[in-house]
């Protein structure tokens, strides 16, 4: 596999990086890996230097943990499970189905980034009893159809197939 960074050399390292609150896995070649390391070192050095400055000037530098607590304080929370949006940003996992409603506005841009779209398409729960009955009937018919095929009664099988198709069409049209 080629290096994700330069696309030239064979990747020999797999690293997990925190980017925009999401953990991403990247495959890197030794050269690019070295660059990431120096970048990290530069960051560490900067933190260390600023703590020296803080000691000299008497200014307080917030620790990472304090920043997290600060974050949690101002972050919206899910009314059902109590999860804060800032907690989600750290873990990547939501607390309960109601979190989606509570954080809908914040989640939309993230979902757009992940999936490229935010409107669901595809299967949906069978919400009405009529739809459920229709689905049950379709399943019965397809079992009968399988039986007819195994008995080589293709005429019956074809008739059953048409019935199933008609039910499926009705079901689709009945959906909002």
């Amino acid at each position: 596999m080629l290096c994700d960074e330069c696309n030239l050399n064979e990747a020999s390292y797999t690293v997990s990086l925190m980017m925009e609150g999401q953990i991403t896995t990247r495959h890197l070649c030794p050269e690019c890996m070295a660059r990431v390391n120096t970048h990290m070192n530069a960051q560490t050095v900067k933190t260390l230097l600023s703590s020296i400055m803080a000691a000299i000037t008497g200014e307080r530098v917030a620790s990472a943990q304090e920043e997290e607590e600060e974050d949690d304080l101002n972050s919206p929370a899910c009314p059902r499970c109590g999860m804060k949006f800032s907690q989600y940003k750290r873990s990547g996992k939501l607390g309960c189905p109601a979190c989606y409603e509570a954080f809908r506005e914040q989640l939309r841009p993230m979902l757009l980034k992940i999936h490229g779209r935010v409107q669901h398409a595809g299967r949906r729960p069978l919400c009405t009893e009529a739809a459920q009955r229709s689905r049950t009937r379709q399943e019965e018919l397809s079992r009968e159809m399988a039986l007819a095929v195994s008995l080589e009664d293709f005429e019956t099988a074809a008739r059953l197939r048409d019935q199933i198709r008609a039910l499926a069409r009705e079901e689709k049209e009945a959906q909002p």
């Binding site: 990547g92 996992k93 939501l94 189905p97 989606y100 809908r104 989640l107 993230m110 979902l111 992940i114 935010v118 409107q119 669901h120 398409a121 595809g122 949906r124």
Partner: peptide, 10 residues
């Protein structure tokens, strides 16, 4: 809007 809701939005 968001379909089946899962623990991880991915």
């Amino acid at each position: 809007e968001l379909g089946y809701l899962t623990s991880c939005p991915t």
